[in-house]
Design a protein around this nucleic acid. Structure first.
Lengths: 195, 195
DNA sequence: CTTGACATGTAACCAGTTACATGATTCT
DNA sequence: AGAATCATGTAACTGGTTACATGTCAAG
């Protein structure tokens, strides 16, 4: 989702400044969608302003720089609802982690094991944070998306744990049988081999 | 992963033309990572050529336009291995579908139901295709990644099926309780207070 | 006779990231 | 004293998408 729509979505729940929008995009539940930098947010807000989708109000603050509080307009709400209506684009999943594992035979055994271990630790911490997350008062949509993300992380963790040894062993085996002999793989935990 | 690295990864498994690279990126197992257009591939190959990561050889064909077959060099292999070594960037998951469901209260009941149904159908078809996919001869890494993707899709399908009714009902319930008290304009709800 | 596969490329456009630029205040 | 937080923005760069441009051949 582009930054403009993301900003509209947040402003729809209440007026906010660019700085505050960035903070909200960093924490749950918006974190699931995307993190964007100031370099995207401020220009996006200016374009929304030009288009009449939002209004600004400068807020002088004692002992703080001025704040520009943006609020969504009826026009902006219509725009947001419009973008929800047309059929959503395909999901895109980008994982450099998987890309590296895909080429497991180009890495040393230890590097592979380390990769797994750090990812498993990260996943556990992410899952803990998501469990700790307060959802009282959250909309049904927010809860649904949170649950989707949580089950994704939990299943990913499970997959990594149950297939770690398999990949490590198979990669080692493949490395040794470079071109000489063909080794018949016999395993009950071959990914995709359960049909 | 950027297009150049993606091209190197494919060429590492064998020489290919730009057209063939695109086809490989469209099918399993590369499909999991990313799909890229010709507009990305041809410039990427030229940059790899300039950098000495690949070589070209024009191949005249009977009754076909000439083909430019690219092959990876020792230099290019080193480059690829190098990019696998430094710690992978964070996974990014972008889903307009989830973004829409997040705002379920802005959509009509029927639109929501339709969204679910089309997505469920799509997922089922994707899963079938992945099950039908031939993995004999695939590297351990490729199998691992394929399995990761497959379990993701299966779990996503399961989550959608088991939570469809919940979201539909909860959204309906929320709509009825908030419609009366909903306050549209800017008003006093400025987050972050004032001073 | 038209669609689709084969085959390569460029140019304009759009979006996002990173680095830069500024500056007060509060916490450790 | 130095780091973190609050607060806003621009400019350069990078990368990807889309549209354009060209052409053959096979199959329906």
């Amino acid at each position: 989702m582009d930054t403009r729509t993301l900003c509209l979505a947040i402003l729809q729940k209440g007026a906010a400044s660019g700085y505050e929008i960035k903070k909200k995009l960093e924490e749950m539940p918006y974190r699931i969608f995307q993190e964007v930098g100031f370099g995207s947010i401020y220009p996006a807000l200016n374009r929304l302003l030009e288009a009449g989708h939002v209004t600004v109000q400068a807020q002088a603050q004692r002992k703080r720089p001025d704040k520009k509080v943006y609020a969504i307009t009826a026009n902006g709400r219509q725009e947001l609802e419009g973008s929800l209506l047309h059929p959503p684009a395909q999901d895109r999943f980008r994982s450099d982690f998987l890309f590296v594992l895909f080429h497991s035979e180009l890495l040393a055994h230890e590097e592979l094991a380390d990769l797994f271990d750090t990812r498993i630790t990260e996943l556990k911490s992410t899952i803990d944070q998501m469990h700790a997350c307060d959802l009282s008062g959250a909309s049904p949509g927010a809860r649904f998306v949170h649950g989707y993300g949580l089950t994704y992380y939990e299943n990913a963790l499970d997959y990594l744990c149950t297939h770690r040894e398999w990949l490590l062993d198979e990669t080692e085996a493949r490395r040794q049988t470079t071109s000489a002999t063909w080794c018949p793989e016999v395993s009950s935990t071959v990914p995709g081999g359960d049909r």
